[in-house]
Design a protein around this nucleic acid. Structure first.
Ligand code: MN
Ligand code: MN
Ligand code: ZN
Ligand code: ZN
Lengths: 155, 155
DNA sequence: TTCATAGTTGAGAGATAATATCAATAAAAT
DNA sequence: ATTTTATTGATATTATCTCTCAACTATGAA
């Protein structure tokens, strides 16, 4: 295990140390800037943008250079620990989460539910037959209001 | 009908005059730059980027300023005559087409099939029950190889 | 606990995408 | 044909993201 990570394990949320361990296992160093980004991503929950990560970090006076924030996001994405969320307009949001998945995003507050099974298999088969395409990937994202925002808007 | 459009109706593809008429009906002027963009979008078919529109137009020596290309794309989008396509990486491609729809895009050549019914209704109901969200919009895009690219890759 | 090394960082430059400004222009209504 | 008003395009500007490279630091080995 990483010496650097051991030294601060006590001060970090478990979700952060989990992710940091996966970085170490993949052969990457566990550094201050990387831990900072992991803390921000964990704290923000939901669907966050790089800009929001940066703001969260700046507010706490522990922001790495913007280049390193982008680099860490890219790294997490390459390791499949972070998924990109395509919004209706907004295209560059992310959420922590392993592997293939989909998102139900609140357009009011950014809250988010992740789900694995999107049920497009039969659609895919049907379209392959009709069009002759061989389909190898799909994107399914849903948008709406979370219970809280729904309640707030009813008031 | 637009005087400007009448004067060049003969020289334009029907698909272009159709779209131009819809601009006029919505109260917008039918101008040279706008017709040029419509010609490019119609000619490119499939899923095109703003950059590809510009290249097509430059190659024919009739490119409006880049600002006007963006403006026309935005206008068509606002009028719901153009849909934005979210790719896996590539986020800003467009396709002509009215109203809500989905796309099956060839990752080899950019060819595209549009389809209306994506069959996520039952998924939506299921998730609304489980999460308490009220879902109001969805994104469904499929990717793969078109028959031609499939044949080419089999060689 | 050092030490050497290879991976990482950050400031700043640079690339790319898109928007804002505004005087000049051109389509449309008259 | 003239007037009116939307539109255009050159240019500047902003936003997003990547690159470069000297300085730094986490890690494995000693
Ligand atoms: Mn799926
Ligand atoms: Mn997108
Ligand atoms: Zn909400
Ligand atoms: Zn193809």
């Amino acid at each position: 295990m990483s010496r650097y990570l051991e030294a601060r394990r006590e001060t970090l949320p478990p979700a952060v140390t989990d992710l940091a361990e996966q970085l170490a296992e993949a052969g990457y160093k566990v550094t201050g800037p990387r831990l900072a980004v992991l803390k921000a991503a964990t704290a923000l929950r939901g669907a966050f943008s790089v800009h929001e990560l940066e703001q969260w970090l700046i507010a706490r006076g522990e922001s790495p250079g913007i280049a390193s924030i982008f680099r860490t996001v890219r790294l997490l994405s390459d390791l499949n620990l972070l998924q990109r969320i395509h919004g209706l307009d907004d295209c560059h949001r992310y959420s922590l989460g392993k592997g293939h998945g989909h998102h139900l995003v609140c357009t009011g507050c950014g809250a988010m539910e992740r789900f694995e099974d999107c049920g497009v298999q039969s659609l895919i088969q049907q379209l392959e037959q009709r069009t002759g395409y061989r389909i190898s990937a799909h994107l399914v994202e849903l948008f709406g209001l979370c219970p809280r925002c729904l309640a707030a808007s009813a008031a």
